[in-house]
């Protein structure tokens, strides 16, 4: 299970993104922008807005505070959803990882949740929980909880035999103390890689919730510009969301690398 989690993560194009030669990348970026501008001339402002107009729109929504307000709401939603998903994922992960009874009775539901696209659950959440913050937070939890639960459960199932032995001989007694002091610490790298997946899915869940409910946050901002066919503003508000997703994932993988270094 643990190996499965890490391979699943590395196949996503994180690793190949290296910035060894910034000059070549800058040249390529210039080429892309020139092509974009040519596309703008050929297709028109509605289909592909010109590069300057996107930057102007970005500057304008930043200065007017609309972008900052929307991003603030989105980040708050992400924070609440991810914290709750961590708590719930940890609870069930420990339960399922350490008890076979829990594994056999509970894990099928998590598997079912994992294969169901979060988007498909949003209408149900809306009917049951309404338009409020709680409904949106629940969507983020639904998106993010399973990778956390799976990584916690999977890593606790692999017994860190030597570590447990050593801890016992140093007088760590009781299942809870062992869990906190030994098993969870040994499992940290795997749990972090599960958390990295969860962050990516949480960003998607956040966008889905905000788009479907059309209330607050960056998702609603993008869609309100989309409804007015202001394509330049749509691009200008999508870019920060993309960078938010990439930035958060990078942050977690940096923490991950830190702890991997400790273990090896």
């Amino acid at each position: 299970m643990t190996a499965v989690i890490t391979t699943g993560a590395t196949s996503v194009p994180t690793r190949s993104m290296r910035w060894k030669e910034p000059r070549r990348h800058l040249l390529f970026l210039a080429g892309v922008l020139v092509l974009w501008q040519l596309g703008n001339l050929a297709l028109g402002q509605l289909v592909l807005p010109s590069v300057p107009s996107v930057f102007k729109a970005l500057l304008e929504i930043t200065l007017s505070g609309a972008l900052i307000k929307a991003m603030g709401e989105s980040i708050l939603l992400l924070f609440l959803g991810l914290s709750a998903a961590l708590a719930i994922g940890f609870f069930f992960g420990v339960l399922i990882g350490r008890s076979k009874l829990a594994q056999w009775t509970l894990s099928p539901y998590f598997s079912a949740l994992f294969v169901t696209p979060t988007v498909a659950l949003v209408p149900l959440v809306l009917v049951w929980f309404g338009f409020g913050l709680s409904g949106r937070v629940l969507v983020v939890i639904l998106a993010a909880v399973v990778p956390i639960m799976l990584s916690v459960a999977g890593s606790l199932r692999d017994e860190p035999g030597e570590l447990v032995e050593v801890a016992r001989s140093f007088g760590v007694r009781g299942e809870i103390a062992l869990l906190v002091h030994v098993r969870l610490r040994a499992a940290l790298p795997v749990i972090l890689s599960g958390f990295r997946l969860a962050v990516g899915r949480a960003v998607v869940g956040m966008a889905v919730a905000e788009t479907y409910l059309r209330l607050g946050g960056i998702g609603a901002l993008i869609n309100s510009y989309g409804a007015l066919f202001q394509t330049d503003y749509v691009f200008a508000s999508i870019l920060p969301l993309t960078f938010l997703g990439i930035g958060l994932t990078k942050l977690v993988s940096r923490v991950e690398r830190h702890f991997q270094g400790w273990q090896s």
Binding site: V32, V47, V204, M206, I218, Y225, G226, A227, F229, G245
Partner: peptide
């Protein structure tokens, strides 16, 4: 070299939630 230049863009698209692209797809 081509792969290395292209992959940041692919990664950027890949990490953008698709629901927010829908307004662009309607236009395109």
């Amino acid at each position: 070299r081509f792969g290395e230049l292209l992959s940041p863009y692919l990664y950027g698209i890949f990490s953008t939630p698709r629901v927010v692209i829908v307004p662009l797809i309607i236009v395109w």
